[in-house]
């Protein structure tokens, strides 16, 4: 639990373009933010998918303390408060990568699909720049909706 800034955090190479698009369209400020959204979504739906083709996306030094705190909280809750599971940041982030990887699928399925270029056989998902004008607002709206349904149900 040192908030180690020297770890390379990876996402699946399949989502590289999408990560780039979300940043350059101004929907998120940086990669770690989108990763955080996806990790939260994956965790809440209790879904984790192992990253198949690792592609280093950002340095852990960009993760903010509140984000770290949420990651530690997720792992602690999942492991019945076993502090040993959060002692190594690298191992912990590897687990979070799994949640984020599942989370991006949830994000695409539940929201981003309407903003993507048509996906042909196995091609990487990409934003369609012609329909992204209001994406930053819709994105925040979608996340907020998720938080509301999840939080108040519990």
């Amino acid at each position: 639990m040192k908030m180690d800034g020297k770890i390379r955090v990876a996402t699946d190479a399949h989502y590289k373009e999408l990560y780039n698009n979300m940043k350059s369209s101004g929907t998120v400020g940086d990669f770690h933010e989108l990763f955080f959204v996806c990790a939260c979504l994956g965790y809440r739906k209790k879904k984790s998918i192992q990253v198949k083709k690792r592609d280093d996306r950002f340095w852990s030094s960009t993760i903010t303390p509140p984000e770290w705190a949420c990651y530690y909280a997720m792992i602690l809750e999942q492991n019945e408060f076993d502090y040993a599971k959060v002692s190594e940041d690298k191992d912990m982030l590897a687990v979070i990568e799994g949640y984020a990887n599942a989370g991006i699928d949830i994000l695409i399925e539940g929201f981003l699909n309407d903003y993507l270029l048509p996906i042909s056989n196995g091609s990487d998902p990409q934003l369609d720049p012609t329909c992204c004008k209001e994406l930053p607002k819709q994105f925040v709206h979608f996340i907020f909706e998720q938080s509301e349904s999840e939080t108040w149900d519990n």
């Binding site: 101004g26 929907t27 998120v28 400020g29 933010e33 989108l34 955080f36 959204v37 939260c40 979504l41 965790y43 809440r44 903010t64 509140p66 984000e67 949420c70 909280a73 997720m74 809750e77 930053p136 607002k137 994105f139 925040v140 996340i143 907020f144 998720q146 938080s147 509301e148 999840e150 939080t151 519990n154």
Partner: peptide
């Protein structure tokens, strides 16, 4: 808007 992304996301895991 992007300044709100992390705030809103943290709300998703608020029960945790």
């Amino acid at each position: 808007m992007h300044n709100l992304v992390c705030k809103a996301s943290a709300l998703i895991v608020s029960p945790t």
